[in-house]
Amino acid sequence: MEYVVLLLLVLGIWLLRELRPKSQWPESNDPQWPPEDERWDRRSSNRASPPHRRRQQSPAPFDASSSRPANTNEVLKGSAYVVDGDTITISKRQIRLFGIDAPEMNHPFGKKAKWALVALCKGQTVRAEVIASDDHGRSVAKCTLPDGRDLSAEMVRQGLAIDWPKYSNGAYLALEPDGVRKKLWLATARQKGHMHVWHKFEASKKAD
């Protein structure tokens, strides 16, 4: 009798599972959990994208308001990871090239400036003589290649950066090709404090 009751109990459980509404979600260990139509749609979700899929953001600029002279003996050496046309990283230390201003990555010639700097630094040991640091650990440095070439000077010579007299005292001004300040007009506008020109450009890009 006990076996009959047990058999009926098992049969009843099986029937309940088979006859449950089809819309009910399956067990959590089901390989299709959750149902296909209930899965998270990454395209429409407001959640942040996974870190490896996030768009690389432009590095924060050097904070001149909190800058302080660095130890004149501080020198970094090593392979350089190029962030943009005037910013590199050596041993996880962000370094702004001394005395110049290159276009931002989303500005005209920004990507070209970055790849020109990549070509200069590729396979080279870069020497960075730190001049100043800010409160966020970013540094300004005179960066040179093993053959003595100044990376700031090379970027200006190629017409992919302009001298920034406020910080360089005009050290690279004579190296600027003719017409480069019209070509890199957004960098020129920044030096003149005309940031409304930037805002107008960026608004037009968002509208496209």
Rank of each mutant, 00 (worst) to 15 (best):
R43F: 13
E18D: 05
R68H: 12
P26M: 11
A207W: 00
Y3W: 09
V82C: 02
N169D: 11
F109P: 04
S152F: 15
L76I: 10
E129Y: 02
D63K: 10
F109V: 04
E129Q: 12
Y81K: 06
K183A: 01
P165W: 15
A119L: 07
W40T: 07
T87K: 09
S79G: 09
Y167S: 00
V180T: 07
N71W: 01
A203Q: 12
S45T: 15
H199T: 12
W115C: 02
H199C: 00
W164G: 00
K182G: 11
S28I: 10
R47S: 08
Y81I: 10
L7Q: 07
S49G: 04
V82N: 05
L19E: 08
D150H: 05
T125R: 07
E129C: 04
L145I: 03
S168Q: 06
L160P: 03
P59W: 01
A203S: 06
Q24I: 11
M105Y: 04
E74D: 13
A161C: 02
R53A: 04
K122R: 14
R55P: 00
A102V: 02
A174C: 03
T144K: 12
R42V: 12
D147N: 15
G12M: 08
D84E: 06
I100T: 05
G85F: 01
Q57S: 06
W33E: 03
W198R: 05
A153G: 09
D135A: 15
W115R: 13
V140T: 09
K122Q: 13
V197F: 02
L117K: 04
R157K: 15
M195L: 13
L145K: 02
E38Q: 15
F109L: 11
Q94L: 12
F62A: 03
E38D: 11
D135Q: 13
K142H: 03
A60W: 07
W25A: 14
R39M: 14
V118E: 15
P51N: 08
R190V: 13
K114Q: 15
A128F: 07
W185D: 03
S58K: 06
L120H: 11
C143D: 03
G78E: 06
D30P: 00
W33C: 05
L16M: 14
F109K: 10
L11Y: 03
M195K: 08
Q24W: 15
L8F: 13
V82L: 07
D30M: 03
L160D: 01
V156W: 04
Y3E: 10
Q94A: 10
R181L: 02
R157Y: 07
R39T: 12
D63I: 08
